[in-house]
Design a protein around this nucleic acid. Sequence first.
DNA 1: CGGCAATTTGAACATTTTCAATACGGGTGG
DNA 2: CCACCCGTATTGAAAATGTTCAAATTGCCG
Lengths: 226, 226
Amino acid sequence: MIETEPVIKRIRVERLECSACEIGRASGLGRGQFCPFIERRLPAGTAVFSAGDAADHVWFVRAGTVVLSREVGRGETRARAIRFAGSLVGLEALVSPVYADTATAATEVSLCGATSVGVDLWLGARGTPARTALEITLRASGADRPRESPGDGSAVARLARWLLDEGPRGVTLGVPRHVIADLLGMRAETLSRALGELARRGAIATTRTTLRIVDEERLADAAAAG
Amino acid sequence: MIETEPVIKRIRVERLECSACEIGRASGLGRGQFCPFIERRLPAGTAVFSAGDAADHVWFVRAGTVVLSREVGRGETRARAIRFAGSLVGLEALVSPVYADTATAATEVSLCGATSVGVDLWLGARGTPARTALEITLRASGADRPRESPGDGSAVARLARWLLDEGPRGVTLGVPRHVIADLLGMRAETLSRALGELARRGAIATTRTTLRIVDEERLADAAAAG
DNA sequence: CGGCAATTTGAACATTTTCAATACGGGTGG
DNA sequence: CCACCCGTATTGAAAATGTTCAAATTGCCG
């Protein structure tokens, strides 16, 4: 029988030793080096950063919980992941001028923040294997869109949005339809019907294996509709 | 007017110069070093690796498209992301003994693979900032579950599954209900009803701010149901 | 102690899922 | 080069599921 503790609203973090922190250790704190991250506390509900903002800081979650959300259209945003103590958030600052996610403190949090410039220096020379792997990973996940679900808009709207920003690439590269359906959180049959609907409205032209965007404006209308 | 090319099924990659590759360059190919990655081609539809398998290789996508899927329950799997040329897949091998995703070639692909051991060496000393950041990132994203949607099971089943493997942590750490609802691809109202249903079945005990798993077996039944 | 925000509840409604059956298109073998 | 076959995509109609919107409740905080 699993028993959960009462929900934590206030966190108590006396004095987390930086030498006990993974980031602190990587910084070589014991060896006369310094850590670019500076602690800061935020109350529950505070926005740490917002998707689209200039990505100028990277944060390490020292205590508390941060929720990551991404836009799904019409300025609406949906939670897509949770980050607990020990995670880095906003690392996309390394590879993008703007944040991909909106980060919100779900509880009171203790965050250690550093400027992108500081992190850039901290990470060491560019082009090393570790750094290259990190950047490749960040670029890939920064471009991912969370799987969608019916609450994010009608099937037609979701498809229209997807086509507007991933379509030409994804469709061209031979991704099977059932995969697209999965990403959009719908069944293959529903995708098929949505494609048909957009074609009927003159937004796209499609055959069983081809897809062409005919009228971007109508597509945008469909995307906005709901 | 955006026009897509016909779907690509066969890829032509004559001889991609390794010195032109981001990975090759990071390996210091020009400087007498070597790259641990070895090219291999796979036809469309081939499984590169499967979630749960021993994570012994890391792959770099040189050409083609790879689909990443993750389990959503009952052994069913849903596509959650697409990786194009220039991405690394299976990097979770660095921080986990098993793959978190199932990777499938959507088109014919040219992949460069390296053993986890080789990549471990290639990345250089452990504990450096870049490597630490990479590992933290991989650990976090490896634990993420893709947002779910109604096609992945009924609201009650999705909630039950979530509670079984994320519940105690997420609930304890004060994640608001509407965030959980987002992650499960349902509205807050539906989550509320699903919680009520599980409580009625005696699987959990819940108040407006508390949640306790009372009977794991019933929860598992609900998770399997559909 | 009062007010606010989050959660719960209700009932009608719209949407998507289902489960079949059918049509294609591409790849294979002759 | 063409016919055949298999797997993928499409279509149909019924049914179930989740969404909506509004109102009531409750816990938390100042």
